[in-house]
Each structure stands twice: as structure tokens, then as C-alpha cells.
Design a protein around this nucleic acid. Sequence first.
RNA 1: GCGGCUGUGGUCCAGCCUGGUAGGACUCAAGCUUCCCAAGCUUGCUGCUCGGGUUCGAAUCCCGGCAGCCGCACCA
Length: 491
Amino acid sequence: MADREELESVCKRRGFVWQSSEIYGGEAGFYDYGHLGAKLKDNWERSWKEYFLSLGDHYHMIYTPNILPYRVLESSGHVDHFSDILITCKRCGNSHRGDHLLEDITGESAEWMNKDELSDHILEHDVKCPDCGGDLDEPEDFNMMFEVDVGPKGDRKGFLRPETAQGSYMNFPREYRALRKKMPMGLATIGSAFRNEISPRQGVYRLREFRQAELQIFFVPGKHDSVFEARYQELEKKNIKLLRSDWEEQKEVSLDELDDLPVFYRYHLAKIYEFYSEVMELPHDEFRLRELSEEEKAFYNRIHFDVEVHMESLGGWKEVAGLHYRGDHDLGQHQKGSGQKMSIPIDGERLIPHVIELSFGVDRNIWSILDKGYRTGDRDCMKISGSLAPYKVAVFPLVRKDGILDRSIEVYEALKSKFSTFWDKSGSIGKRYARQDEIGTPYCITVDYDTLEDDTVTVREIESTEQIRIPISELSETIESLIKKEKGFSS
RNA sequence: GCGGCUGUGGUCCAGCCUGGUAGGACUCAAGCUUCCCAAGCUUGCUGCUCGGGUUCGAAUCCCGGCAGCCGCACCA
């Protein structure tokens, strides 16, 4: 429930997120996180790691470089396929995708063609500009990857990685041995990825440099399924909301109704759903899992669901994550390209493991928290899960006299080593509550005259604005159990 | 990338047509006040997107760059 402009204004004013290199006018597709945004992002990434690494006994983080050698992305298919061939009209100057122009005439797929082949076919079919009928110029390559020159002579070509996943694929053989051949094995990573988007828009939704949190899970279907099956038991009656490619509209179904999907896929689908509802605490009717149709999904993805969040500020359902069953495509490509064995021995033969990929756009997820959290009206308020909120608690003196100020500093000092805590004495008490409401601090503690008598303080909750009074000695554990949801807030 | 619109303190906007001291609201900071939800008072910080041109003089007119929004295209 957030108007784009209002939300962007709060983000800039309070310190969440804004355009990068601002003082020089900015550059499209690059954003900075301020002090609150950085805390929120760090908290999200920490929660992501805790949650998803715990899904398997052998799921671990790894970190790999942002720059990849040319050959890696040649093998992965990005050099050929992560690019478009653009053809510009000589008369009206509009650019079109070359393969689409040809497909419109022939009705056959032209995506596989390179520049020269496309050029020949365009001539052969005498294709004209669809906008004005003018003659077309020679095709030009537009690759979405940023090319970099490596080494002193700059003669070694590389790219800024367009996705973080390749690092996990390439490290499969090494980690398979280091982790002592345990399967299913998961290699997760969080880091930057780079895509030279033609026209980045919609704030942090489409960036040229962005963060991904990805988990690649390696296993051999039919061989390692029992591990997934055991974990799946507890979930099979669970309801999740989704939209399948052949359904008219989304609906809530229990997992065991999705019996055309393999159990290992269903298990992770359900866990992703749970992450959005329980960790990110998004309202159930504001996010969904949507299956991509055959036309929409890439050829190597056997099953593909996206997580979509309904974001008012971005005008509707927007993709924030995906779950892809990629078969043996990725390891197969690297085995071919590197000449190294990516297979493992299974019952006397060598098999290339399959991959399911959990892929999250960090910036998009952060934005979805802000979009879903921000409410205006009588009171401007950012409702963020306690575990993600930049500050967990704020401490105020009710008035700045009679020793109350000093007492509030003592309370603040006692809490700040345990929680991200804010202390504020400026303005009226209501103003201070309002400031914390706007940045999503779930609890505000006020030191008042009663505190001087009996060492109790009030704790106010962001959503209801209700207060409870508790002894200072119980403050720390009370706040902790409130944030962890071990205990509900009631006065 | 193409077309349309836009760019003024931290934020949101007025001023531009008709060139001549840049204004408001909110925010922020310091202080006063205050026994619980953006109150009030005092003081203060901060601005014409950038570059060029016209002019005695440009926020204002002209040209260009950059950025943003909307539409088209793009988004393996």
C-alpha cells in the first residue's frame, strides 16, 4: 500500500535507499543503500542464510569473484545467448530485435542465429522496418554483459558476472570432495551481479548492478530423493497459494495436490512460501508463486515458478525470486567447456547431478518489504518484521528533567550491546514515536516518573501503539522474545 | 534507444508564460517547554540538475548533456 513517490521520499529522507552518484546527477540503474537500508539489507541477508541453509544438512555458503573469464560465460551460454542482435531502421531510427523481425515473417524461431546468419536471412526475405517500412541497417550485437579487460595488456577478456550461480556450478567438484561426497549438496552465495540493461527503470526493481542470493542444490533424481521425501512429510498437507501456467487464477492448494511436480521441487517451493509468510511476514494475499508457461521459461528450465509480490509502488505483481529445476544443463555445459569431469559415480556409472536453483533478487526483496510495510494516513508507519527492522528498539526520556534523561541513558546503554537500539531526546514524546514509526522500529521504551520510583518502563508496540509496563530487569529478555515472536504483545 | 512530460533547500511544491533581492509547507539541528503519541516558542543549516549561448542582468529565453516519470521497444 505504498505510493511510489511517497515511499521514495521517505527512503531518501530517512536513510534507506536512493540513486547512486547523486551529486553528479546519477547514473541510471545504480542505487545506494543508506544507513537504514544497509541494516535492513544485512538483516534480510542474514535471515535468508539462516533460513535456507537450514533446509539441507549439506547446504553451505561460498563466495566467488565478480569477474569471470571469457571462457566461463562462453560455456554457460551467456556469450551467445545473453545478448540480442539489434537492427536499426535507416529511416525512422527505431531499433528492433533481429530474431523477432525474422520470426514475424517466417514464423520460425530465429533465436539461434548469429549476426551474419541473421543478416543473410533478412536480405533473403527482404525484411523492412515494421514501424515505417524503411530499409534496415546491418545487425549489431548488443550484449547485456559488461566486458572487462583483465591484465596489464588488457588482452584477456572477461565479464562482470551476469548472475552469481556460475561460481557455485564451477565449484561443484571441489566442494563435492571437500564436503566428503554428501548429497544432496547445496552451494549458496550472496553477491553482486551486473547486467547492462538498455533502459533500467522503476527504482531498484531493474538495476545494472544488483545483488542476488542464490542457492544451487545438486542431487541425482531417483538416488537422493529419500532425503527430500523425509523432509517433505511434515509439509504435504500444507496449503500454499499459487498460479499454475494452465490456471485461470491463483488458488490455495495443499502440496500433495501438486503430484505432477517432483517431491524435491515441492519441498523447496513450500519452504520458499514459508519464508515469505513467516520470515518476511508478507500478507498472504500479497504474494504468490506463479508458474511460467512454456513460452516464458528458458529451454533448460524443466519447471519454473517465480515468487511474485503485489507492489503498489511498482504497479502490480512483480517477480522477486524464482525456483528453477535446471536438470543437468549447467554442470553439463561446464563439463563440455572445461573438459573437467562434473559427474559423480552412481551405482557403477557416472552421472551428472541435476540442479534446482533458488534465486532471489536482494534489492527487489528489500523493496517489497518497504512497499508492503509502508502505510500513510493518520500515522505514517513502516511495518517491518522485528527480525528485519533496522532498529529493534528505541529509548526515550519522557521529559528532560528531574533525572529522567540520565535514567534513559542508562537504559539505552544496557540495551545497545544486545539490540540495534536508538536513543532520542529531541522534540515531544509523540514526535519521537512518530520518527520510529516511519523507520519501522517495532518497540519504543519510555522512561518516566514511575521509573524513578519502581524501576519500570513502558514498552510501546508499533502496530497498535499500545503500551505495557515492565521492570527494567526484564527488559532485555522481553524485547528478545517479542522480536522472536515467542511471546505476543498485549497490555 | 525513440516520443511526450519533468528537474527549485533534506522532502514536497510555488515562482518561469511577461528576465531584475528565490518563497511556502513539512523535515532536520541546537535550545526552551512538556507526566505518553507529529502541539507550541526561539535560533539556525541547507536550494534554482549540469554545460554553453542570448542579455547590462537568466531559476525564468535558446541549444546541448545528464537524470526521473509515462508510452513504445527491451527485460537469455
